[in-house]
């Protein structure tokens, strides 16, 4: 870290181990993930840091390829075999039942399997593909329930039916016996949410859960998720490309660009006073009824490939306010610009 970095809640003290903060549910500290490929190691996530408090939603935004999914998969230890997590990365996770640095757990260990699904659940972009087509909805829900809540078959089925009912699926007793292809897209995503929440996780990771749905269903599912988060006192990481969606569901935001969090802070502060030029670009791209004909391009220029990561600030080749000789040479410092509001940018150094 740069010596000029102002102290922040989870910034690493020079030379020392980062300390877990007891009030946070999840602390991701300097997460680095690379992939082995034919061209060598390709860094996909390059020092991501953020925290998440109990019961709140963090929105993770950024263009395609910025590393949102890889970051959350690292938290779940669901990365493919060719992924390498830097050993200095820290993933502190703390609930009533757990206090662990997930980065140090073996992916197949009992403890990790208990966390995965039991403490942290995940839902995905394509509700159809998330279910196996050859087992009933009930079979797949009961599998999760019986893995994490020591109940018998009958009780697991009851929990599944109740959960389906809870997420607004009509006739849940029939639906548990049906196969995924017998449900509509919106219903499947509700069923997936029901499955994820049936183990009462402390954290739900939702990776673009509404992208595949039509606009009306999308709004309903967003509302449902927010309601469930409050009722179940659960935290959420909500991944999306869409700043508009973030404003609806998230209390805090982390903006990712090319494997780094370039700005993070409370949703209101970040939307009202964005600091990073990239965040400003994303906010400009929220579709508005009065500018429907404009193309939604957040920032000019193309995202560089992770194999040709620019030196200095990764955003400088596309940045309108780039400071020549500074932004293209050294990595930008992390600057605290407000309460819990941090930006990695030379403009504020």
């Amino acid at each position: 870290m740069d010596a000029t970095t102002p102290p922040a809640s989870v910034e690493r003290p020079p030379g020392g181990e980062p300390e877990p903060a007891p009030d946070q549910l999840l602390q991701v500290i300097d997460l680095k993930v690379s992939f082995r490929s034919d061209e060598g190691l390709v860094r996909a996530v390059d020092g991501v840091t953020f925290d998440l408090a109990q019961g709140l939603t963090l929105g993770l935004v950024g263009e395609s390829g910025s590393g949102k999914s890889v970051t959350t998969k690292a938290v779940m230890q669901l990365l493919p075999n060719n992924a390498v997590v830097d050993p200095a990365s820290r993933l502190y996770f703390r609930t009533e039942r757990t206090a662990a640095d997930i980065a140090t757990l073996a992916p197949r260990s009992r403890e990790m399997r208990r966390i995965r699904g039991g403490e942290i659940a995940m839902i995905f972009q394509e509700p159809m593909a998330s279910f196996s087509p050859v087992y009933t909805i009930g079979n797949q829900m009961m599998e999760a329930i019986r893995l994490h809540r020591h109940v018998g078959k009958a009780e697991a089925r009851e929990i599944a039916v109740d959960m389906l009912d809870r997420v607004g699926i009509a006739n849940p007793a029939l639906r548990v016996r049906q196969y995924p292809h017998e449900l509509s897209g919106g219903m499947r995503q509700r069923a997936m949410i029901a499955l994820a929440l049936s183990t009462r996780p402390a954290l739900l990771i939702a990776d673009e859960p509404t992208t595949a749905l039509d606009v009306t269903t999308q709004a309903q599912v967003l509302e449902l998720l927010d309601e469930l988060r409050r009722d179940f006192a659960m935290a959420m990481i909500f991944i999306t490309h869409d700043m508009g969606v973030i404003a609806q569901v998230a209390q805090a935001v982390a903006v990712m660009y090319l494997g780094r969090v370039v700005e993070r802070g409370p949703t209101r502060a970040l939307i009202d006073t964005p600091h990073h030029p990239y965040t400003e670009g994303l906010l400009r791209a929220i579709p508005r009824l009065d500018r429907l004909d404009e193309r939604l391009s957040p920032v000019g220029g193309d995202i560089p490939s992770p194999m040709e990561r620019p030196t200095g600030c990764p955003f400088h080749p596309r940045c309108a306010r780039m400071i020549a000789g500074t932004c293209d040479t050294a990595p930008p410092p992390s600057v605290k610009v407000g309460p819990d509001h941090h930006v990695d940018c030379f403009l504020y150094a």
């Binding site: 669901l78 208990r114 659940a121 394509e126 593909a129």
Partner: peptide
Amino acid sequence: NKLSVTAARARGLPEWRLLLKY
């Protein structure tokens, strides 16, 4: 490579049980 396999893994299913079932 199917998402349903990742989803099952995300449920915390032990690996070999998961591979055989899905």
